[in-house]
Nucleic acid binder design. Sequence first.
DNA 1: TAGTGGTCTAGACCACATT
DNA 2: ATGTGGTCTAGACCACTAC
Lengths: 251, 251
Amino acid sequence: MIESVISDINRAMDRTSPVPLYFQLAGELQRAISDGRLPKGDFLGNEVDLADRWQISRPTVRRAIKELVDQGLLVRQRGVGTQVVSDHIRRRVTLMSLHDDLEAQGRAPTTTVLTHEVVVADAGIAASLNLAPGSKVVHIERCRTVDGRRLAILRNWITLDTASDITPAQLRGSGLYALLRARGVRPHSAELEIGARIATPTDAALLDLPVGAAVLTTRRVMQDSSGQPVEVGSHIYDASSYTIETNVLSG
Amino acid sequence: MIESVISDINRAMDRTSPVPLYFQLAGELQRAISDGRLPKGDFLGNEVDLADRWQISRPTVRRAIKELVDQGLLVRQRGVGTQVVSDHIRRRVTLMSLHDDLEAQGRAPTTTVLTHEVVVADAGIAASLNLAPGSKVVHIERCRTVDGRRLAILRNWITLDTASDITPAQLRGSGLYALLRARGVRPHSAELEIGARIATPTDAALLDLPVGAAVLTTRRVMQDSSGQPVEVGSHIYDASSYTIETNVLSG
DNA sequence: TAGTGGTCTAGACCACATT
DNA sequence: ATGTGGTCTAGACCACTAC
């Protein structure tokens, strides 16, 4: 790693900040890689030396480097060194809502709320959400349109205590996950099943598709950081305008 | 955590083993959770105390616990403790081949090799594999059958140096990824695009599907641990018999 | 106030790859 | 023989939670 990058990082590190040092360092390294100051193929230099130059301990340096290794930006080889192998941040496998996802691409999604009600969960939903049979949940059904084209039907079931104050107006303006995050839900993991089938008449009507068109279907159960399932989502996409892109790490 | 589990783990830890202590500990904890000795809802006890009982340092204990937190088995809360929130090991997002995947489910896949040849990579494949235009690659086309049913068409393009000695007989007997691993390829990450469409006449003929059936399609570029792309896979699945199941962590 | 996890240090020794 | 990352230690102080 060239001298100037080391100096840049030295300047950027702020010990008075509440942000952990390893996190600051990981961010600075990521920035240096993505803007080309630390190009693909370069070696970082050995950890002991880097720790010394940055005046932080080696475990802290290692922790920062590990973040980038996990993202696929760096590769470590014992006896060799740490090398930059990619200069674009791998899109993480995401739990973002479709709304956020499209906005991040600079497109302007519009949302029609078809259904918004409190219902008694059926057996499958109740089991997925770890609720007693007969429990009530919030059921939402939306249609997502982009560039005048109907893209997806989104059906969600959410535990009553987390979603009881969500309004249709809010759903029109932002993604479900943004609303949940604002209510203190921190998504942690989701089980996801992806399939495909021919559009049913209902699908075709809602998505404005011809008879016989293919749709992509997903069903997920999202759990928040306390390990409790919070939301079930069952989504149907027009396969001719949507693909799921993801990135799988360290299999 | 009850006394006996702590003792079990104390007995199981082996400092003479080349397996890292944090890894041994993580495995023991995972086993204790999955077999019910450490049930859902239980707290582990504080880290300083555990480190003392197991006679290992607290950072090592933390590293082991972190593994399970990342898998969604445990939740840590500052000021509160570490609690078991799930008793089944989340299936990791996998880079396993379909063959391995089905075998893990106890089913017996059979493979027909339709094409196996060295060809000049087209522009898209060459770009994906980071090869010069006109480079040669191994092209494989297989049909995967399970329980007498044609499940998928698998098309792969692999860099010549890694796959030149693979034979059709080997492809019939095991999954592509197993063969690649045996050749020293360690899969590290893959970009994956999932879509759906109506089967083309070719798809329908190869998969023995009726006209108008839906197929699930995936395209991936796999990179090994050195960061180099090694393989491109383009797969087509009978959507009526196959879904992709996965698990998304920490979004 | 007491107890918990979160971060950080300054070393040590080992395994592996290269020369 | 040298240099690298991989693991591990025995502390320290801080931030947050619950009482």
